[in-house]
Amino acid sequence: MKKILVIDDEPGLTRMIKLNLERTGKFTVRTENCGKNAIRVALDFDPDIIFLDIMMPDLPGDAIAEQLRAEPRLQNIKLVFLTAIVTRDDTADGHNLIGGHHFLAKPVSTKDLLRTIEMLLPTT
């Protein structure tokens, strides 16, 4: 079971992601709505992939990403930004890459999430 951490300040959103991904039976999903808790939870959960919102009130997503990259145990974890400030066109290059980072433009569908997970964590 792949472990997926979703960090977003919207509880309703993280809950819906969790429901949809776990419904597949392939993933264990943990959610966190406070940015400041992100590193601690990541260290504790040790996810395979993290979906990280950028615009969060207490700590922005890019700052969390820096902290994750700075943590040796976490620096190899796949990181996908979930953001409302890019458009689908911005990320529609096949790899959802902007400046070397993976992005998903909100509103993301379940298919988008699964496609991205499959791309980053292929089941072979």
Binding site: L19, N20, I85, K106, S109
Partner: peptide, 24 residues
């Protein structure tokens, strides 16, 4: 930027909700 943040989150929530409803 403000609108995107405030609107896109609910939109995503609705979209995921619809995904869930359709499959469940």
């Amino acid at each position: 930027a403000g609108v995107a943040h405030e609107v896109k989150n609910p939109l995503m929530q609705i979209r995921l909700g619809l995904d869930y409803v359709r499959d469940e």
